[in-house]
Structure formats: structure tokens, C-alpha cells
Design a protein around this nucleic acid. Sequence first.
DNA 1: GTCTGGCACTCACCCAATTCGAGTGCCAGA
DNA 2: TCTGGCACTCGAATTGGGTGAGTGCCAGAC
Lengths: 352, 352
Amino acid sequence: MPTKPINPVLNERAQHLLRVLIERYIREGEPVGSRTLARDAGMDLSPATIRNVMADLEDLGFVRAPHTSAGRMPTVQGYRFFVDSLLTVQPLDGQDVQRLRAELKLDLEHKDLVDRASKLLSGITRMAGVVTLPRRKQSALRRIDFLPLSDNRVLVILVINEREVQNRIIYTDRPYTPSELEMAANFLNEQFSGKDIAAVRERIIADMHQTREDMNRMMQAAVDMAGQVFQAEDLQAREDLVFAGQTNLMSFRELCEVGKLRHLFEAFNQKRDILLLLDQCLNAEGVHIFIGEESGYNALDECSVVTAPYSVDGRVVGVLGVIGPTRMAYDRIIPIVDTTARLLGAALNPRE
Amino acid sequence: MPTKPINPVLNERAQHLLRVLIERYIREGEPVGSRTLARDAGMDLSPATIRNVMADLEDLGFVRAPHTSAGRMPTVQGYRFFVDSLLTVQPLDGQDVQRLRAELKLDLEHKDLVDRASKLLSGITRMAGVVTLPRRKQSALRRIDFLPLSDNRVLVILVINEREVQNRIIYTDRPYTPSELEMAANFLNEQFSGKDIAAVRERIIADMHQTREDMNRMMQAAVDMAGQVFQAEDLQAREDLVFAGQTNLMSFRELCEVGKLRHLFEAFNQKRDILLLLDQCLNAEGVHIFIGEESGYNALDECSVVTAPYSVDGRVVGVLGVIGPTRMAYDRIIPIVDTTARLLGAALNPRE
DNA sequence: GTCTGGCACTCACCCAATTCGAGTGCCAGA
DNA sequence: TCTGGCACTCGAATTGGGTGAGTGCCAGAC
């Protein structure tokens, strides 16, 4: 192992200076000048020397000066390099770990856990937290029930997997008696209980189009009703996000312009873009970070998103993350996101 | 009917001027000076005269000048008087009515209708819309079902009224077989189906404390399980709000200071205060308006809230409204809120 | 070649002075 | 009771000087 892998264009000294600069900028939020940096860096260099290095870093696109006579601040590429090569993450604060453990202990409702995780992320980081709902590993139909309402309407209750109950109302062409409905339900339960939803759906649709000689009237009715139920797309794992602490973002000076805020909050409301972004991290190993425009969504131009997938039973089922200004304390945020993902996964772990 | 009721302290002319002033201020958003008002009022009065009247209106607290040499703008009391006595509401725009009718037609899911109503309110008014979920008139237990899970856990499915399905998981002291659970469910259904939830709850709790000589084991188990289910408070009509278009509020110059916005959005997130506010209108007849500080919540100091209760079957079940800056076009907003409330009520009307 | 001190220059920011204009209050007279 | 006139007020915009932080560049030292 002769030489350690260093970005060829950046020597040790430049890297160190970049690192000190970014750390200071993240702390103070103001462009860092050569004199300050000379003092901070602890390298016994004069400001003039620092200026030369800065000029190089600027040429390489790692820092920029907001105007002629201001200090330098990191660019997106600067942050990127910092995060990839220079960062040493802080160990997670003990109190925070305790808090996470305490609130993310095994609990019953998935939705509730996700809510909490999201609130914890935002609470601990003082930024916005976001968590995707866990997708089901597989959706086995556990049971189907029919309940007659008035006016040829029937309430259908589906139990999927262990915990999830869905219900919908369908219209029938004639009124059915409770016992007819019970028979239909029994028929369907016998046929499909334990099967995967997608498979059930296919079967049902096939059955509906098939010749029906071999079915009696009850079976036909059952299949028709099931057809109505399973046509709806939202039976498929409908994806969704839970946010928390969006308002925290209003405190950051770099975001507090109304126009930007508006964009950002509209993105939160629509959810779609954020969801797509998080989905990109489903297959990533561990923490993934989008800095500024890297996300590809204008609304997030001034923001960074730190994400981590979470898994149940070794299978990734969702992603969580933190959204904050580009200038965030990555060294503190990363382990928070990482740990939260781990603990959420553990809490969701099925003991069923 | 000799004299029409006029606020004694304000003569016809002053009223007219106040009205013109407020109308203009609402349109333009800037303090109105005497010269402008003289031109606008169409009364052939000189600015000097107007000034005298303005001085009176200021003494009475209806208008105020932000500084010595600025025009006048309405105070909360000014708006109040305007809304109560001077306002002539606009007929609702035809397109808007159509849109409301089209989207609020009879539909199945309450939640869905409420979502739509909220989006419509915000979409048409370009402000924030809010709708409380309809409370159930009464909560009749329609059916209860038990489904065994692993580890002594049982999934309980409750059907309440016609459309609503709730589910929760309870822990039992020993595993039950499906048939045991079925018997327990049958027992409970026989006893309680059709009864009001609150009544059921009372009965169950009474049964649990009572001597159990006359119950067999199955009945005891059933009552115990039901006890667990009905203890949860959220079986009671849990109240909730649906917002839409909050981000619209970011466009208004009077709200676009970050601190205020933050307060406002935090209030939206907590929901509680807004809910309490809307609840005050449950018993009000028709449209009710809170102007500025009248709401009693700091977060809403710069906002007005226009609300209307909506009813199903002649019974008020919820409230909806629009939240916007104090300086809003009340004449346009009021009929929108009013009509939306009526149409939402109609759409929710049970045909069951 | 690398580092450093020196120097001229730039630019944001602050402060004070100035002007401008819209609007007011008050008063005397119709 | 209304009006025109007049002095006055105040915010907003403009200008200009001063300050300080910081830069780029260059020539000389190591």
C-alpha cells in the first residue's frame, strides 16, 4: 500500500485548509477570509500564502467568494469533497441515543413508529425530518369480509398481512343478503387466503373474463365483487411520506426568503419529488447525501438531504432522512440519520 | 319600520367614506389618502372635508394612519363594522360554482370529500382552506371481529356506522383459536350490534367489574377483550382538520415576514388552536368571521378566518373555512365559504 | 520553487445629510 | 358646514464619505 489515495489535484495542505474553512463556515455561516483561516488552521502560514491556496481552490471550484472583497465559502463541489474525503463524523450524543431508543422501542403501529421517527429526526437535528412508510415485503391477503349496506352497496373489509386492514365500498347490481355475502366471502377466503395480493388480482381478473360454466351464481357474484375490489390500484403498496419539523427550516437565514420557502413547502406538500428523491436511496448502502442542486429539484437548491435506508429482516423497506440548509453540520447529522434508520428498522422488526 | 338601524355614531356619509376607503384598501393594499378618497368616493367633497371625516373615524377607532403623513387604513374594528354593516357580498362566480358542484358530488369516502373541499377552498380563494372532519352523528357499533395473530395478539376489527372501519391490536393472556375468537365475536355482536359506542363501552366496563358467576369462560374472555378495545379513547369521535394551500399565504406581503409565517405554520401543524377556533363556529348560524386578533390566537393576529358550519340531515357535523390576511376580499370570500359548506353538507348526505 | 510582506484596490456596510412627495392638521373665510 | 390655503411631518429614496475586511499581485527572502 504505497500511497494512500488522495485526490491528485489537491495536496495535503490544500485539503487541510479546505477542511478548516468549511468547518468554520458551517459553524459561523460567514465567508472565511485569509487572515482568519491562517489563525484557525494552526499551520503557521501567512495570510498571503493562504490567499494563494484559496485562489487555487477557487480555480478548482471548491470555494467561491460572494464578492471581490469577501472571504471564501464552499461551493457544492467543495461540500461534496468535504463530505466524501475530509469528514470525520462525531460520535452520537449520548442523550440523543437514549431518546431515540426510548421512543423507537417495539411498538405496534407502523404508522406510529414512522411518525415518531420523523419527529425525532426533526427534533434532534432542529431541521426537517422525513420518513417513507415501510413498504410491505409482500402483501398476503389474509382475509376478506363483506358487509351489506343499503342501496346495493357492500362494505368490503380486507385484512392484509398481519396488521393492515383496508376497507372500501363497492356497488352491486342487486341487493345481497348477509348470508349470501358470507358464502361469497367464505368462497374467496378458501380460494385466496394467504396468497399474494398481486397474484390474487391476476387470478380474479382472469376468472372474470373466463367462461363461467363451471361456476355457480354465488361464485360468479363473489368473483365480480372481488373484481371491483382488486381493480383499485391503491391496494398496491401505496407509497407515502411523513414529514416533521418543516417549520424549523424557516429559522435558517439562507432559506428565509419567502420565495424559496414557498417553493420548498410546495415540494413538501406535493411529496412526489421528495419521494422520488428518497427512492433513489433505497438501494444505496448506508447514508447518502444530496448537496444543493445535486438533488435535481429546484426547490431543494439551497438544501441538503441526508438519507439512509432502513431495513426489516435484512430487507430494505424504506428510507428516512433529514432536510436542512446546505450549510449543516454534516458530522453531527450523519450519525443521527444512520442510527435512527437502524433503530427504526429494529423497531419495525416483525415478531409475528 | 320608521328608521333603518344605523350605528348611531356614524352618519351616512361617514359610513360611505369608510366603505370606499376599505374597499380601496383591500384592492390596493396601501393607505388611502384624502385626495384619493375624494376622487373615489364620488361625493363631490374636497380632500379637506374628507380629512375631517377621517379624523372622526380615527377617533372612533375605525381607521388609523401608520404614520403622520400617510393615508388611513382600516383597523380591526373598521373591518368589523365594514363586514357587519357595509358589505354587499358578490354573487359567486359561475365557473367557481360549477367547479364546486363538479368536485363535490356525492362520493363515497368522507375523508376524500373533506380533502377536496379543503383544496377547493384554497384553490378558489388562493388562500388557505381548512375543513374539520365530520363528526359522526352517533356511533353505532355495527360489528366486531377478531382475528388471531401470533404471540397472543389479536387483531380486532370494528365496523362503526355504515362506512367506518377501525382496527387495533390487543394482547391476550393466552392464545385463542380461531373458533374461540369467532364465538366471542358472535357473542359480542349479538349483545351489542347496533348499540351506541358510548353505551357499549359503559356496559362492558360494568360487566368487567361485576361478579361473573353467570358468565361462562368464553363470555368472560369476550368481555375482557372488548374491555381492552373500548378503553382506548380514540374510539370516541376523534377530531381532526384538513388543511390545503397553506403555502398560498406566503404570497401575501402582510404575512411574508418569516417570524410571522413560522408562527402561523406552527399553528397549522399543531392543529389544536385552529380546531378550537373552528369549534366555536359549530353552533353559529351561517358564516362567521374572525378578524385579526379577534380569534384570540397570536399566530392569527394578521389573519382573518372566514368559517361556515356544514350540516348533514339538518345537523351540524363540521366546520370549514378559509384563512387569509386580514386584508382580504370579504365580499368574494364569504359566498365561496358559504356555498362550499352547503355543497359539502349535501355531498356527505347519507343515502344509506 | 515556495513563502512572505507590502501595497493598491475593491466592495459591502454604516452613518449622516439631503431632497422629495404624499398627506396631515388647523384655520380663516365663504 | 364646507373649502382652500398653508405650515408641518414623516417615510422613502438618494447621495457621499468613511471604515474595515479582504483580495490580487509583485518583488524579494529563504
